[in-house]
Design a binder for these strands. Structure first.
Lengths: 163, 163
DNA sequence: TCTTGTCACTATGATTATCATAGTTACTAT
DNA sequence: ATAGTAACTATGATAATCATAGTGACAAGA
């Protein structure tokens, strides 16, 4: 295919976001970063992406200021990747994607009785379901406010990938 | 490249969403549908996508139950595309993308003085800024609650594309 | 009637991103 | 000396993408 279209100069904000987020690999890597995975091999294993794609996307995300590369050991040099403020602010997007999928992307009973991933509000303990505002205390939900508990099926899948 | 990886059977909800949304063309088409553009040529012109991609993605979105194809004229046969409930429920995702871009994806003053796209809450008239809950009345923002006004720059860009 | 125009697409060909797999570098540990 | 760990880079086959041109079915004007 020819070089993919450049959307970084459009004035439409959804277009600008799509330039970065309209890419499966980017979304999967961001998901992993939000889940606390910071290392190359860990991300590659869990996403199932090949190392050259992980490499290319991490480089892109660093360029875009969404993540930062930190040396966590000097010899031999080893690096990990952390979300910046700009990256953490993508929480709403990923959380909205999660909410939509929980509502529409599973067959009845596919994940057992509950959601694929259950979130509770740290502040008040309420199960937030798939809402953007806590049904318990009414607060808008933000990065860090939630505690996630994967369903048995999801837990098993992740364990299998971590090998 | 080999066939792109299939994420539709993962138990991770972000993965399932990424299967559909991790694609620039899909995001741009959805954006246009949310803006009220329903016709093939209109969408092709505004997104800048080639007709075969528009065609393929509209077919995919119909298959996924996100949009519906309606004949709006019999002879000659002409069709338009409308968001279903499942499609309209993607509003939060696109709106979160817009919010993030407004906060991070523009240079200082690039869009004039305000945002690239200004939204006001129909119910109370308040400018919602980039929040998920109306700063005027406190209500969570949902599909249909907002009135959008593009900046001069965005308006000009869209007019140029409509040609 | 002949030509032009509209609109929703389909067809073709060159280009390039993607995946799978294997290899590299630079160490540490046994 | 050999094996292991971790962060990558290199290679090659394949398929998705873009640009462009073309099609079919009709309407409207000259």
């Amino acid at each position: 295919m020819p070089k993919r279209a450049d959307l970084s100069d459009t004035f439409c904000p959804v277009g600008r976001s799509a330039e970065l987020l309209g890419d499966r690999a980017v979304l999967l890597i961001l998901r992993d970063l939000f889940f606390g995975r910071r290392r190359f091999e860990e991300i590659a294993a869990n996403t199932g992406l090949g190392p050259q794609i992980v490499s290319a996307r991490l480089k892109l995300l660093v360029e875009q200021g969404v993540i930062e590369r930190h040396a966590y050991r000097e010899r031999p040099p080893r690096y990990e990747y952390r979300l910046t403020a700009k990256g953490k602010d993508l929480f709403d997007v990923l959380y909205a994607m999660r909410n939509w999928a929980e509502r529409w992307a599973y067959e009845e009973g596919e994940t057992g009785s509950g959601p694929a991933m259950r979130y509770t509000h740290r502040a008040c303990g309420a199960d937030v379901g798939t809402s953007t505002v806590c049904p318990g205390c009414g607060e808008p939900l933000r990065y860090g406010d939630l505690r996630g508990e994967p369903s048995a099926a999801l837990k098993a899948e992740q364990a299998a990938k971590a090998g």
